[in-house]
C-alpha cells in the first residue's frame, strides 16, 4: 500500500515541527494507520524511506506501542479498560458480556471484520467505570445493554 499524497503532505507538516525529522515518526504512523487501518510491512518500508531510517526501526516502534497495529484488526478497535478501578466496578463482567454478544473472545476480530474486541490498561476515566474506547471516542458509565447497543450501531 502506498502512502497517499494527502497523508504524505500531512507527514511533511509534522516533520517541520521537530528539530530532527524522526520526531514526527509517531505522528506519521498515526496518520498512515488512519488511512490504511494498520501498518503493513511494505508501508513500514515506505515510512522508513521518508524518515531515512531502516524499516526494522519503524517496526520496532510499531510493535512497542499498543495503539499501532502490525496486522489488520477489523474496522473498529473496541477496548474495554480492565485496570483496577474499572475492574472494581464491573469491567470484567462487561468484557464477558461483549464477548458473548459478539461471539468472539477478547483479542479477536468478528468474522465480518467489523469489530476487534480487546482489553486495555487505564484510560483515565476511572470515576466513570466501566468504560470503553472505540477508535478515538470514549464511552463511559456503561451498562451491558448500552454497551451492546453501541457496538450494534458500528458499521
Amino acid at each position: 500500500m502506498v502512502i497517499s499524497d494527502a497523508v504524505r503532505s500531512a507527514i511533511d507538516a509534522e516533520i517541520a515541527k521537530y528539530p530532527e525529522k524522526r520526531g514526527a515518526l509517531l505522528a506519521a504512523l498515526h496518520l498512515v494507520q488512519r488511512e490504511h487501518g494498520w501498518i503493513a510491512p511494505e508501508t513500514a518500508k515506505a515510512i522508513a524511506e521518508i524518515f531515512e531510517i531502516r524499516a526494522i526501526e519503524v517496526m520496532e516502534v510499531v510493535t512497542f506501542y499498543n495503539m499501532f497495529l502490525d496486522r489488520p484488526q477489523g474496522r473498529h478497535q473496541v477496548r474495554v479498560c480492565t485496570n483496577l478501578p474499572c475492574s472494581l466496578r464491573g469491567a470484567r463482567e462487561l468484557v464477558h458480556t461483549l464477548e458473548q454478544h459478539l461471539g468472539v473472545e477478547a483479542g479477536e476480530t468478528t468474522p465480518d471484520g467489523r469489530i476487534h474486541l480487546g482489553h486495555e490498561e487505564c484510560l483515565g476515566a476511572c470515576a466513570w467505570a466501566p468504560m470503553m474506547r472505540i477508535d478515538d471516542t470514549y464511552y463511559e458509565n456503561l451498562d451491558a445493554e448500552q454497551a451492546k447497543k453501541i457496538l450494534d450501531s458500528l458499521k
Binding site: 483496577l84 483515565g124 476515566a125 476511572c126
Partner: peptide, 11 residues
C-alpha cells in the same frame, strides 16, 4: 501522558 492507573485529573 497521564496513564497512572487511578489518575484522571490531567484529562
Amino acid at each position: 501522558d497521564e496513564s497512572e492507573p487511578g489518575s484522571f485529573k490531567d484529562r
